[in-house]
Design a protein around this nucleic acid. Structure first.
Length: 828
RNA sequence: GCCCCCGUAGCCCAAUUGGCAGAGGCGGCCGACUUAAAAUCGGCGCAGUGCGGGUUCGAGUCCCGCCGGGGGCACCA
């Protein structure tokens, strides 16, 4: 074999990359394009270096979907950009003493060039970068709109604080008490910060998941549901001795109201502080000491399980609205200040936490629900066993509720409280508002001006964007205050409302703001008079298929859903869910664990590409298994992929018939394999079974090889038809090889070639094998026409030797016939 | 502790959604070609589906209970 007749991936890559660069086959969105639209989106990358194996997997899989829809005749929008604000750039800038902008743009240039080499089917005309002012301009614009609607607001509260990054964190960025970015234990700090009012949409964010059940991974839906954490219960008001205002508490178990033996307020709440001031000096002292201790605890300490309950009796009493009992009020850290009302009624007999506390403080325990354990035996006395009776049961010691089941009792007590004006049904959420202020440099400046007379004044549209001041001369080191505060020329401004001297807000926005609406910016990335074109949004959005890692299951997806609903309510879009369908690809591992330099199991993408070629790496990603499963690179074989690609490529090289030859006269068996592969593959792609599509393509390649070498030969028209089908199928996974094959076969632009029409008549088999079972065991088989009737098949089956032998003398009870595939004879 | 997902051949994985457990690949073994090797071509399936029950004519698939692995949530009243 001479050299030019060999499969050489490097030469093929070099041949087609410049051609695509010139032809831009995936440019989308021409006005006069009559094809139906499809919006396929890959989560955009953070430019922290060059692309790695994880990117390679994600973009290979997203590409299969995007390329499939193009070949299916759709006008596909498949854009890419960079999520280019964020801490890594800033930290790198601090470490090396460089400008984060330069570091960021260098990395973007590197990634962009790698993506092109990797043959990603992106529309390169729509690239966006969130660190550019023409993007974050619109973050600011949206912020001011949210502010006008009361969806962006500032409040003082105890916030999560990362002592290492010296910035606040959203709830979602605290993982197990640690900073999501740097694993530093998070502490609390009382600060005045900006929030987005996500809770306004809590119900819709939860209920909307229902519509995504078919098209989102159930895991992600479960995670979001969990995160929002809606609970149904009741608010109950308790009069407080020596206090004019009553206290409202939230409970999911109003039925146990008669079992309340004390009350607890969150130690770090304003309410606790206020109640304590009414107590004697010793109590005030004890309380002050306790609060200091609580505030000094890290989040991780607080979350520790089996932590003994602690608290301080405030020497105050509340009055139980149903029986007038005096309930001592305690302050403790096991009640959270920012959930419900920061205060609870404690029912130790029926709540484990309350019981633990009661036992620690020697408080009374009163059973008001006759519960049974799993065996139906009466539940042991919680005060003695230390196990709270949290199950269902019949009410006792509860006045009017006695004899009712839990559910009926809840209904009855809520009605009672409601009539008395001392309570009502209520709903609470685990979800908190989204804290978006960050005390860091590399982000979107918050477009608010603080004026002594006018208060918080949004920057008017004609003064947007508020550009980041130049990093030069600014100390970017984290110090608990935004580096922007030091840029005095930038900070000092005038109030847009009254012209008095005023100060800019010096915090920047959480970078998750950037990614909450970027999918809309792609629709009109150059637009200068708005965040996106409303008409283009009607044409393309929402996203038909979103592809990305499950790591963003909560944060990014929840925030994007919130933005979408807010923008809808501003009348800018007409849908409430941004991502109609979601595919989470797994991770790429090495030897069973995530790759990392420190573990020494890092596989470098560039080395893999140099050794095996782009196509072999992409094909390996798709063939490794179901896309949502993790890939262990040690278990797969890019060398095997390369071998297969060479084998496929040689088919095109060997074809000896002319382009356009009529396949109808060709080898019928091969034609059947070809058309079956074409038909099945399209369904399989749409079901994300990319690994099976590759397997079907391998089958087709094997069948074609056989016909060439030991069948009808390379001139048979069916061989050309098969080779062309291979090229088209392969272009989803291995675009260079496919393009080269397509070119050898006398065509151009395989990516734009639509799937050939499937000839269904070729898929009808002449005979099918019918298995004959007796008592579910295979005893014989029959070759029958596919259209055979039930009765005829039954008689044929009963006459087979295998069946007769198995039946013997036994009598036949029933015969189950599933024509044409199976007959099962039941005897005895 | 609660919730979700997954256990099929030495390994990665298929299985028309209840109908012959095996499509594809990796590895292994055998053969052809070759002076030899590489490359290429051809051939060989080694497990009865983690375990125990149940439903059914029939279960990898559905139900119940375990075991093992992965992930999420976890003082949210």
């Amino acid at each position: 074999m001479t050299d030019e007749h060999r499969y050489k991936f490097r030469a093929i890559e070099d041949r087609w990359l410049p051609v695509w660069e010139e032809r831009q086959p995936f440019r989308s969105g021409r006005e006069d394009d009559a094809r139906p639209t499809k919006y396929v989106l890959d989560m955009f990358p953070y430019p922290s270096g060059d692309l790695h194996m994880g990117h390679a997997e994600a973009y290979a899989l997203g590409d299969v979907i995007a390329r499939h829809w193009v070949q299916k005749g759709f006008n596909v929008l498949h854009p890419i950009g960079w999520d280019s604000f964020g801490l890594p750039a800033e930290n790198a800038a601090i470490k090396r003493g460089v400008d984060p902008a330069g570091w960021t743009e260098d990395n973007i240039a590197q990634q962009l060039s790698s993506m092109k080499r990797y043959a990603c089917s992106f529309d390169w005309d729509r690239v966006l970068m969130t660190h550019r002012s023409d993007y974050y301009h619109w973050n600011q614009w949206i912020f001011t709109r949210l502010f006008e609607r009361g969806l962006a607001y500032r409040k003082h509260s105890n916030v999560n604080w990362c002592p290492k990054d010296q910035t606040v964190l959203a709830n979602e960025q605290v993982v197990g008490g640690l900073c999501e970015r740097c694993d530093t234990p998070v502490t609390k700090k009382k600060l005045n910060q900006w929030y987005f009012k996500v809770t306004e949409y809590a119900d819709e964010l939860l209920d909307g998941l229902e519509d995504l059940r078919e098209t989102w991974p159930s895991k992600v839906i479960a995670m979001q549901r969990n995160w929002i954490g809606r609970s149904r219960g009741a608010d109950v008001t308790f009069e407080i001795e020596g206090r004019e205002q009553p206290i409202t508490i939230y409970t999911t178990r109003p039925d146990t109201l008669h079992g309340a033996t004390f009350m607890v307020v969150a130690a770090d709440s304003d309410l606790a502080a206020e109640l304590a001031t009414g107590a004697d000096a010793a109590t005030q002292d004890a309380f002050a000491t306790y609060v200091e201790k609580v505030k000094g605890e890290s989040e991780i300490d607080r979350l520790a399980t089996d932590r003994p309950k602690t608290g301080v009796f405030l020497q105050r009493y509340g009055i139980n609205p149903v029986n007038g009992e005096r309930l001592p009020i305690w302050a403790s850290d096991y009640v959270l200040a920012d959930y419900g009302h920061g205060a609870i009624m404690a029912v130790p007999a029926h709540d484990q936490r309350d019981l633990d506390f009661a036992r620690a403080m020697s408080l009374p325990v009163r059973v008001v629900l006759d519960c049974r354990d799993d065996a139906g035996e009466p539940f042991g006395d919680p005060a003695a066993t230390g196990v709270a009776a949290t199950g269902d049961g019949v009410l006792v010691n509860s006045g009017s509720l006695d004899g009712l089941e839990k559910a009926a009792a809840i209904e009855a007590i809520v009605a009672e409280l409601s009539a008395a004006g001392t309570g009502d049904a209520a709903t609470n959420y685990r979800l908190r508002d989204w804290l978006i202020s960050r005390q860091r440099y590399w982000g979107t400046p918050i477009p608010i001006i603080h004026c002594e007379a006018c208060g918080e004044v949004p920057v008017p549209d004609d003064q947007l964007p508020v550009k980041l001041p130049n990093a030069e001369g600014l100390d970017l080191k984290p110090k608990g205050q935004s580096p922007l505060a030091a840029a005095s020329d930038w900070v000092n401004t005038t109030c847009p409302r009254c012209d008095a001297p005023a100060l800019r807000d010096t915090d920047t926005m959480d970078t998750f703001v950037d990614s909450s609406w970027y999918f809309l910016r792609y629709l009109s990335p150059g637009k200068t008079d708005g965040p996106f074109d409303v008409e283009e949004a009607k044409r393309w959005a929402p996203i038909d298929q979103y592809v990305g890692g499950v790591t963003h299951a909560i944060l990014h997806l929840l925030y994007s859903r919130f933005f979408t609903k807010a923008l809808r309510d501003m009348g800018m879009i007409d849908f409430g869910e941004p991502f109609t369908a979601l595919l989470n690809q797994g991770m790429v591992l090495m030897d069973g664990s995530a790759m990392s330099k420190s573990r020494g199991n890092l596989v470098r993408l560039s080395e893999q590409l140099d050794e095996f070629g782009v196509d072999a790496v992409r094909l390996t990603m798709a063939f490794a298994g179901p896309p949502e499963d993790d890939i262990d690179w040690a278990d797969v074989s890019p060398a095997g992929s390369q071998k297969f690609l060479a084998r496929a490529w040689r088919l095109a090289r060997d074809v000896e018939s002319a382009p356009g030859v009529d396949a109808a006269t060709g080898d019928a068996a091969l034609r059947a394999v070809t058309h079956k592969a074409l038909a099945e593959s399209q369904e399989l792609v749409e079901g994300f079974k990319f690994n099976v599509v590759v397997a079907r393509t391998m089958e087709l390649v094997n069948a074609t090889r056989k016909v060439i070498d030991s069948g009808a030969g390379p001139a048979d028209p069916a061989v050309r038809e098969a080779a062309e089908a291979v090229a088209i199928l392969l272009s989803l996974f291995a675009p260079y090889t496919a393009e080269d094959m397509w070119s050898m076969l006398g065509h151009s632009d395989v990516a734009l070639a639509t799937y050939p029409a499937v000839d269904r008549s070729l898929l009808v088999e002449e005979t099918v094998t019918c298995i004959v079972q007796v008592m579910g065991k295979v005893r014989d088989r029959l070759e029958v026409p596919p259209g055979i009737g039930q009765d005829e098949l039954r008689s044929l089956a009963l006459e087979t030797d295998g069946a007769k032998r198995a039946i013997g003398d036994a009598s036949i009870r029933t015969v189950i016939v599933k024509a044409p595939r199976l007959v099962n004879i039941v005897i005895g």
